[in-house]
Structures are given as structure tokens and as C-alpha cells.
Amino acid sequence: MARQSYHHGDLKSVILAQAAALVAERGADGISLRELARVAGVSHAAPAHHFTDRRGLFTALATEGFTLLAAALSGARPEFAHAARAYVQFALDHPGHYTVMFDKMLYDATDPALRAAEVAAAAELTSGVATLTDPNAQADPEGAALAAWSLVHGFTLLTLNGAVADAEPVDTAERIARILFSG
């Protein structure tokens, strides 16, 4: 990443964007606040002002990710197959966020803002599941929600990890959602 001078008042957003990009590029293990400060062109203490430490950084990144996922799912209404598409597209568009969101060892899972963002994203996915006409899904909405999330999350991880070579993963997500949940 090229070093850029910091000349605006939104350092938190700049650092989160750079952290997401670096996580997507090489994983979370090697990311430090000091490196993010260097890349952002600010003092090494500046990121700590916003995040305290790596755990704080990843908590903020996961919170932002769940918030973005909730918005993507909200815009994908009304049916679950649309939510499946939106879920996979979100992960493809935000792989750094996605990586951190589902690695609870990286962040503070008790953070209230994070919990609220997770609940919002889960509610959006569940609202898509509620549109299923499958009698089994209607009889067991919690089981249907878990099955639906397992489907999209598992397919997304397979895609991001290169285990599934698919030229159109978003279309495939919709197709498999329809196959498994068409009643």
C-alpha cells in the first residue's frame, strides 16, 4: 500500500479501510496499529486513540462489517434467495471485514455496538428466511434460519478460500438457495 499523508478529520474510517484491505490481502495476523499509522501517514499513537489496541481495531472492523452486511441484506428483500445473493456479494466486496467478522478470537464479542450490529444483520437474514414457503421451514423457523445461514456462510467460505471455482458465485448462491429452500 502506498503511504498517503493524513489531511482530513476521519482517521478512524481511513484506518478501518486500510485494515480491511490488509486483512483481505494477507490475513489478520500481521496487522498492527503501528503499521496502519505508518500507512496512513500519522503518528504511531494516533490509531490507539481511536481503537486502544488490535482487539479494539478488530472490534470496530467487525462492527462496521455487520452494519454493512445488515444494509446489504436489507436492500435484498423480499425473498431468501435474494438475501443469499446479497450475503455472498457482501463477502466478495468486503473480504477483510468478512474475515474478521467470523473470527471471534480477534475482537471483543461483548462490545455493545458490535452486538447490536450482529443482531441487526441476523434479523435481516432471518426476515429473508421468513419468506420461505417450505413447510419444514415454516414449522421450524429457527432451524430454517440456521440452515439458511449455514448455506450462505459455508458457500461463501468455500468461494473465498478457492475451494469452489465458480465464475458466478453470486448467481450460484441464489441457485442453491432455491434448490434447497423451494419447498
Rank of each mutant, 00 (worst) to 15 (best):
T59Y: 01
T59E: 04
V42P: 08
D29E: 13
A145G: 03
A137D: 10
R178E: 05
A72K: 00
V170S: 10
H8F: 02
A21T: 13
A121I: 09
D108I: 08
A28E: 09
D140R: 15
A19T: 15
L11P: 05
S74P: 07
H153K: 08
M105G: 14
S150L: 08
H44I: 13
G96I: 14
N161K: 03
A121T: 05
H8G: 12
T99G: 07
F51E: 14
A147C: 15
P135D: 03
A62R: 12
R38L: 08
E35Y: 12
E25R: 15
I15K: 10
A46K: 10
V88D: 06
P169F: 04
A163T: 04
L157F: 05
A17C: 06
P135R: 03
L16N: 12
P95N: 11
V119I: 12
G96D: 14
A167C: 08
L36D: 11
A84R: 02
G65Y: 11
T52R: 15
T52G: 06
R178P: 09
L73A: 11
S127G: 07
H153Y: 11
L36W: 01
T59V: 04
V14Y: 04
Q138C: 01
R55K: 14
V119G: 04
R38F: 13
T110W: 08
A116K: 01
V42L: 06
R77N: 06
A109D: 15
Q138F: 00
K12G: 02
F58W: 00
L146Q: 15
D111F: 03
L160D: 09
A121H: 06
E64F: 04
G128V: 01
Q18D: 08
T172H: 10
A167P: 11
R26G: 06
W149H: 14
S32L: 00
E168F: 12
V129T: 05
N136T: 08
V170L: 09
T110E: 13
V119M: 05
A173Y: 10
A147K: 13
T131S: 14
G183K: 03
V39R: 14
G154Y: 03
L151G: 12
Y87W: 14
L106V: 05
D53I: 05
A130G: 05
V23L: 06
G128L: 04
L92F: 07
I176Y: 09
S43Q: 11
G143M: 06
H8Y: 11
L125Y: 02
G75A: 13
G30W: 01
L61F: 00
A145L: 00
L33Q: 07
A163P: 01
Y98E: 13
Y98K: 12
A2N: 07
M1W: 02
D10I: 05
F181Y: 02
Q89E: 13
D171Y: 14
I179A: 11
F102N: 13
G41H: 09
R38D: 14
